[in-house]
Design a binder for these strands. Structure first.
Length: 1157
RNA sequence: GCUCGGGUGGUGGAACUGGUAGACACGCAGGACUUAAAAUCCUGUGAUCCUAAAAGAUCGUGCGGGUUCGAUUCCCGCCCCGAGUACCA
């Protein structure tokens, strides 16, 4: 048989799953190797060809490491909390858990068919309670910790309390809020518990603080920074406002220095490290206090006014050029600076107020656009320069940012360009302070030269001067050397539903952690995924969402009380309807086991009415008897690997008053009758249920499942839970530890497991996580290390950024006038002559394989699509200077019209028209951009696999180019890879496709080919150059085909070498070669023997004056002098010499001969 | 503006620390096998010039210089593309 990839791939994928071939062992004498992929968010669009790029690379690496004798941990999971599912829920009412589950199933199916060697027994989902239990737990540990600067690590808050009790606040050097109190031990003891807790909150690593959030009134939610583009929501394009809220924050700034230093110890791409360095933004300089000139502050008369008393009588600035302090001629503070009201004199009040009003109006966008125009206002007050006691005026200006440093700068116009422009604008003096400064037209920030006009610094150089002035300021007590970081503490909360609940409740306005044994704090069911009418987060809708600190003792075996309410209680009506739709669909497609069992359970053969695929609470039960309250679940293979999740589900169903029995698919298939008997017995044994429970009449407000596991009296305790949920990065900040010990219900991962696996040896993922996930993960990791639960200061030793596979969007433009717009293939710019009433239509279509499926998708456009696209289109309107009145969707061969324009014009449209070949007035412009569902340029791997198989997809994705490089997707070369695999298959078969290998001893040439590839693949994999290995495989197979080699000795090793890249075909041939099925994954990688590559002679390239002219075969044994002699005597070379004597001859042994004439 | 990448045939891309530029594929052209098509196989394929042909010559890795026997690779200046970031004191 010819190469039958479909059967082969199915066969081996089943084999690997069935035999758990890639299950990693936590106890192994082999050296460990941890290969990790950034786990995906399971979006509704499924995988596109860009996703697997990194997974394929890591899989090749993992498989290669197994061959090299490592115990490899190569897991996969889902970052399954997130916004899209929630947004979808808001629109459709479908529970995010359902969307997520559906999407995960799609992902899993798609991943499975690519043949990854993941250890699925360790799968994690951040949205599953047994995972987020530990996310919540780590949050609690952070809450219970503070950062001791003296020890340079996080420590338990109890230790801090002890210190306060014995020494008060003296001697504590902590990373904390600025407004901490100074107190003695006696003061501390005198404080109320409430006061003490308030004080401690200023030290905790997670703490509450008032922060600004992006509030989108139209969507009714808070948005993350990356969901806001230019002041509008990315989704929908609605305006976003800044709103102040109490928010949970993480004191990541405590780790700024360690996060920065750690970068030097890890093998990450330089650009990525650079991004983190910039984000942390360390600058070394000094802080200086400028005393406010007496008599200038309004507070002299306003002391008892409503505004209150200013916090200080000086303004502190941060500067990186404290050496230029003698050049200070004015000071600028941010318009938002807290002292502005006190500094503004009555004469200046109008001007200042006007300026502040103007600033407030400006959006971020305007502010950026105005960057070059100078604006500001004088407060009327002055500060005293501490080095020369000169009085300098204080201005406000929006070029000074309230959020950086102290929100105030000392202006040195001679050295800083912005200060220079400001001084020119307001006619302020510019004083040169360095002898070589040239400041006629612009500021000169030089550090060279000697100081002038600088009193005690005159004549010194930069280094001396800086030291001297800091010494002077420190002596006077008005300044000191200081390191400033740009990084801010991270906001750790979103006013959203689909995230981890924060395990905190409020009592007397103070946050308290819930009891650790009440974890996980389950996400409650709510009726709508929107904020409450009073503007509280969605969790505010949950009934009974309050905490009783000491819940009921654990249940003893039996069922919980049945009186809890209707089994429909946890579902809101919309969602419940949705579930019912799902179950109807499910009923149409029963699995084999379900079907067999249904034949037995239907028709009242049990004596009870059994329903199948019935919606219960938030789940769909496979079979249920409502009368007896029994649920029968049939678990597929996949479920076995997710026992924890099933247990959680069982528990919830139990709580709703149902008993759950489970059978596996295999059990049912093996013994349907036996299964039936068990069910029947169970039904008979159970008591009759109270019918009123199942009428669904029970009011929805009757109370929901309490997060504490069965106790509905929590509401009475009256302690309200925190209503925000954790941000998207919470779960991903520690998940790699969970893979080490994925089913541990005592710890997030056992110490033993963490000691064994330690850290991630190779991490592959996109660079878009540079300043998010990758920074937060390092932060949490350092915290876990500080607390002694993890052991490696850096979690990801080596990191590779895979490039993005981009999509090609073909955009088609059209005028209403005929013939004045043309498209020329190959022209990078379309030629465009707009008509007076010119209108343009922009169309997206997907290239290649996605075409057919896109067409179908296009016909079922979701509402909101047009709106979404219009945002995208706006850019082109600007470019073309046109207005749009509609959007057309098109594929290569036909148009699909949608929208008003189509409705108006459909009679006149020739639907057979092809824009690509026609010279009608359309033109297209292909554009490379991110592959994304919203751009309709997604190419799906399923199509490729159907046509050419997973092995071809794997090799082709690698063959496309260097892993780290972004590239547009095209399938131009895929035939070449497919042909290669067929050629490889044919090496093992005769012309009739009978398997035929020879046991003859291999020839020298064959061994040479083999050992070349053995070495090449080793080298390439170690440096992540997968594309070049694919080329080398092709060369090797071409060579062996030419040699007609079907020798077992060669092919055996070749199969091993190829197997990481094309595992399915390799496994099949491995088995055909007579090896034990499945043993290939752990076969030893062949040993490279350099002897086979040794050559006797070499075709030396001979260059004349550096230009290659000819090759001469010369023995490699010859030394340079002999080579030179041989070459010069050669008649071919003589011809070039033309009787002249060469000036010089360069001979590099084994490389080249160059003759200079 | 700043920081970091990157510019090599018609295309994707090779070329290890300076040593035969264009590996390997795709595409294209021609041929073989076929009634035909598909599949497969063979040959050619950077540009220009020259030759009946063989052979040969010149130019070629964004542009301009430099170092070197020799530069895609190293150095200086510039242009273009991509990514990140931005009034950061």
């Amino acid at each position: 048989m010819d190469y039958q990839f479909k059967e082969i791939e199915r066969k081996w994928q089943q084999f690997w799953a069935g035999h758990q071939t890639f299950k990693a062992d936590n106890n192994s004498s082999k050296p460990k190797y941890y290969v990790l992929d950034m786990f995906p968010y399971p979006s509704g669009a499924g995988l596109h060809v860009g996703h697997p790029l990194g997974y394929i690379a890591s899989d090749i690496f993992a498989r290669y490491k197994r061959l090299k004798g490592f115990n490899v941990l190569h897991p996969m999971g889902y970052d399954s909390f997130g916004l899209p599912a929630e947004q979808y829920a808001i629109q459709t009412g479908q529970h995010p858990a359902i969307t997520t589950e559906t999407n995960i199933n799609t992902y899993r199916r798609q991943l499975d068919q690519i043949g990854f060697s993941f250890d699925w027994s360790r799968e994690v989902r951040t949205s599953s309670p047994d995972f987020y239990k530990w996310t919540q737990w780590i949050f609690m540990q952070l809450f219970n910790s503070w950062y001791n600067k003296a020890a340079d690590k996080a420590e338990s808050i109890e230790k801090l309390v002890k210190h306060f009790e014995t020494n008060g606040s003296a001697g504590i050097d902590a990373v904390c809020d600025e407004d901490i109190l100074s107190f003695t031990a006696a003061d501390w003891k005198a404080m109320s518990n409430h006061q003490q807790q308030e004080e401690l909150l200023k030290y905790r690593l997670t703490y509450l603080r008032e922060s600004t959030v992006n509030w989108c009134p139209a969507l009714g939610t808070v948005l993350a920074n990356d969901e806001v583009k230019d002041g509008f929501s990315e989704r929908g394009g609605y305006p976003v406002e800044q709103k102040k809220m109490m928010q949970w924050s993480m004191r990541i700034t405590a780790y700024a220095e360690r996060l920065l230093q750690g970068l030097d110890t890890i093998d990450w791409p330089e650009p990525l490290k650079e991004m983190q360095r910039n984000w942390i933004g360390k600058s070394i300089g000094a802080s200086v206090k400028f005393r406010i000139a007496k008599g200038q502050m309004r507070n002299e008369e306003d002391k008892n006014s409503a505004i209150g008393i200013p916090a200080s009588d000086f303004i502190e600035v941060f500067t990186t050029r404290v050496d230029t302090i003698f050049g200070v001629t004015f000071m600028v503070i941010a318009p938002e600076h807290e002292l502005v009201p006190f500094l503004t004199t009555p004469e200046q009040k109008a001007e200042i107020d006007a300026y502040i009003a103007q600033t407030k109006k400006k959006s971020e966008l305007d502010r950026m656009a105005d960057a070059k125009t100078v604006s500001g206002a004088f407060t009327g007050s002055y500060v005293i320069n501490p080095v020369n006691n000169e009085k300098v005026p204080i201005y406000i200006a929006d070029y000074v940012l309230a959020g950086y440093g102290t929100g105030a700068v000392m202006a040195v116009p001679s050295g800083d360009q912005r200060d220079y422009l400001f001084a020119k604008h307001f006619d302020l003096p510019i004083v040169p302070i360095i002898d070589i400064q040239k400041i006629e037209t612009e500021a000169d920030p030089t550090k060279e030269g000697r100081y002038i006009n600088s009193d005690f610094m005159n004549g010194l150089n930069y280094k001396e001067g800086t030291a001297k002035v800091i010494e002077f300021l420190e002596q006077k007590g008005v300044g000191k050397a200081k390191v400033n970081y740009r990084m801010r503490d991270a906001i750790f909360g979103r006013q959203r539903y689909w995230g981890e609940p924060v395990p905190v409740y409020f009592k007397d306005d103070l946050p308290h952690l819930i009891d650790e044994k009440d974890l996980p704090l389950l996400l409650p069911e709510i009726d709508k995924y929107l904020p409450t009418e009073t503007g509280e987060p969605p969790l505010g809708r949950a009934h009974g969402w309050s905490y009783k600190p000491h819940p009921n003792p654990p249940r003893e075996g039996g069922l919980p009380a049945h009186e809890a309410g209707s089994y429909r209680e946890t579902a809101d009506p919309v969602y419940y309807e949705q579930l019912k739709d799902f179950s109807r669909e499910n009923r149409k497609q029963p699995t084999e086991a379900e079907n067999i069992l249904w034949q037995l359970l239907r028709k009242d053969q049990t004596g009870y009415k059994i329903r199948r695929q019935h919606a219960i609470g938030q789940f769909i039960a496979d079979f249920v008897s409502l009368q007896k309250g029994l649920i029968i679940e049939i678990d597929g293979h996949h479920h076995k690997l997710n026992k924890e999740a099933d247990d959680a589900r069982t528990e919830i169903l139990n709580h709703l008053g149902f008993e759950v029995i489970r059978f596996t698919n295999d059990e049912v298939l093996e013994s349907p009758q036996g299964t039936f008997e068990i069910i029947k017995q169970k039904l008979n044994a159970l008591p009759e249920r109270d019918k009123s429970l199942f009428t669904g009449e029970a009011a929805l407000s009757n109370g929901k499942v309490s997060p504490t596991g069965g106790d509905l009296e929590g509401a009475e305790a009256g302690f309200e839970y925190e209503l925000s949920t954790m941000p998207g990065w919470a779960g991903s900040s520690w998940y790699w530890y969970r893979y080490m010990d994925a089913h541990n219900d005592k710890e997030f991962a056992s110490k033993k497991a963490i000691e064994y696996w330690k850290d991630v040896d190779l991490y592959i993922g996109g660079s878009e996580h540079a300043t998010g996930h990758l920074l937060y993960s390092r932060f949490w990791n350092k915290f876990l290390v500080d607390m002694g639960w993890a052991f490696e200061e850096e979690p990801f030793k080596k990191l590779i950024n895979q490039g993005h596979i981009q999509g090609i969007s073909e955009k088609i433009y059209r005028t209403r006038g005929i013939g004045n717009m043309m498209w020329y293939p190959g022209n990078s710019q379309p030629i465009y002559n707009p008509t007076p009433d010119g209108e343009v239509y922009i169309i997206f279509y997907s290239a290649d394989f996605a075409r057919e499926s896109s067409e179908l998708q296009l016909l079922n456009l979701p509402i909101g699509f047009c709106e979404n696209s219009k945002l995208h289109i706006d850019k082109y309107l600007d470019w073309a200077g046109l207005k749009i009145d509609d959007v057309i969707f098109v594929t290569k061969d036909s148009f699909l019209f949608k929208g008003q324009w189509f409705e108006k014009n459909k009679d006149q449209i020739d639907l057979s028209y092809s824009p690509v070949t026609s010279n009608k007035p359309f033109f297209t412009k292909p554009e490379v951009e991110k592959m994304s569902k919203s751009k309709w340029n997604v190419v799906n791997p399923d199509d490729i696999i159907a046509r050419h198989g997973a092995d071809t997809l794997r090799m082709y994705e690698m063959f496309l180019g260097p892993l780290e490089q972004s590239k547009p997707w095209n399938t131009n070369g895929i035939e070449g890879v497919f042909k290669f695999l067929r050629k490889f298959w044919k090496l093992f078969h005769d012309d009739q496709f009978n398997f035929r290998v020879s046991d003859e001893a291999p020839s020298k040439a064959e061994l040479k080919s083999l050992h070349k590839i053995i070495r090449k693949v080793e080298e390439d994999i170690e440096r992540f150059s997968f594309n070049t290995s694919v080329s080398s495989f092709m060369i090797a197979v071409n060579e062996l085909t030419d040699l007609k080699c079907n020798k077992r000795a060669i092919l055996h090793d070749l199969v091993i070498v190829l197997s990481p890249y094309a595992p399915h075909i390799s496994e099949e041939l491995w088995e055909l070669l007579g090896n034990k099925a499945g043993s290939l994954s752990y076969a030893p990688y062949p040993k490279f023997n350099p002897e086979y590559l040794v050559e006797d002679d070499f075709a030396y390239p001979i260059s004349i004056n550096g230009k290659m002219k000819l090759n001469l075969n010369i023995s490699l044994a010859l030394e340079p002098a002999d080579i030179e002699k041989f070459v010069l005597e050669s008649p071919d070379v003589q011809k070039y010499l033309d009787g002249k004597t060469p000036k010089k001859v360069i001979v590099v042994k084994g490389r080249i001969v160059n003759i200079v004439i």
